Computed example of a mutant assay.
Amino acid sequence: MKVILSGGGTGGHIYPALTIADQIKKLEPTAEFIFVGTQQGLEKDIIPRYGYPLKFIEVAGFKRSLSFDTLRSAFKLFTGLYDAYKIISEEKPDLVIGTGGYVCGPIVFMAALHKIPCCIQEQNAMPGVTNKILSRYVRKVFLGYKEAGKFFKGKAELVYTGNPIRTEILEHTREEAYKELGLDPAKKTILVSGGSRGARSINNAMLDAEIALSGRGEVQVLHATGDVNYDAYMQEVAKRGGVADNIIIKPYLHNMPVALAAADLAVFRAGAIGLAELMAKGVPSVLVPYPYATANHQEFNARAVAATGAAQVILDKELTGDKILEAVEHLLLHVNELEKMQAAAKALGRPQAAETIARQALALIKD
């Protein structure tokens, strides 16, 4: 069996593809995998680290206004379709899976034209343009959020699976996490992260909040500022007189699964996979959607989670230290409310999403 997976540009498209591939490998140990990406996307660096072969096509995303770049993207689309044709003809895959990003458009479309079973996985509550187009040609669309279903008009079967997450997210207990991170098990733990590169607006707000929470006996904060923001952040902390040892500030958390196991509450952006990991661990959150995400999809994600009672939303433009401190202190004071949010988060979690997607995708070969 040979499977092609394509999804690229950002980690939000790449890591779901890797997770699905790992699950297919567990179910079909002899399966062969080929990833398809571009030379410009992060997949160029990420995929080889996981030991999978990677082939490239030439394609570019379209701007939302007519310009020379739009014409160049149109030319690259035809180049990408030809590249995809060559890959499909040479590899003759049994199954093709797209996980979003413009790179998966040509390869999934060309596979569908060749009558090869195809499916796509959409991570966000507001689908990307490529996946909306591809839904007219594939057999199944796996939804990370139910709310995304109304945006797909094709004949594909829509299956709500949740988003695929790494298996290691579920491997750590709270007790193990507290010990590994040197945290106090008697205190509530607030985990703060703006993503792998950090988020300046969240850092700015957390600076005021952490000064106020410094030395408090009932709470501890574990804050990843992002590598590029760390030195400047620590300089500002020092200007304010520093913080007590209940405020732990790191440039980067190299073991996020352990940090999630320790968290009672998270302050996060609203990327689809980060949210899926929070929900799988039952961690309630205060979400600050990235305001420049394509089609504002992070706010759609955040609103969908908040509608279940698992999160609160503060828009980036409204974010201040006072607002974040008020939200955190309210939940620390009203433990019953925090526990209800934890239960809602746990109910929303889909820890078996990757296995479900893998099984249903493989079933397309036998149909």
Rank of each mutant, 00 (worst) to 15 (best):
C118V: 13
T130K: 00
V129T: 15
Y102G: 00
P117I: 09
V103Y: 03
A112P: 00
I116Y: 09
M110R: 13
A125D: 03
C104A: 06
N124I: 09
I116C: 07
I120H: 05
F109N: 09
G100I: 05
G100C: 02
Q123I: 04
I116E: 01
A112G: 04
C119G: 12
T130V: 15
I120A: 01
P127K: 06
P117C: 10
N124W: 05
C104T: 10
E122V: 14
A125K: 03
H114D: 14
I116R: 11
K115V: 10
I116S: 04
L113V: 12
K115A: 10
N124K: 05
G105L: 13
F109H: 13
G101I: 11
C119V: 13
I107S: 01
C119D: 05
E122Y: 10
G101N: 07
H114W: 10
E122K: 08
P117L: 11
F109I: 08
A125F: 07
H114N: 15
Y102V: 08
A125H: 02
G101Y: 09
I107N: 04
E122M: 14
Q123L: 07
G128V: 13
M110V: 12
G101P: 01
Q121F: 13
G128N: 07
P117Y: 05
P127L: 13
A111R: 05
P127N: 06
A111V: 08
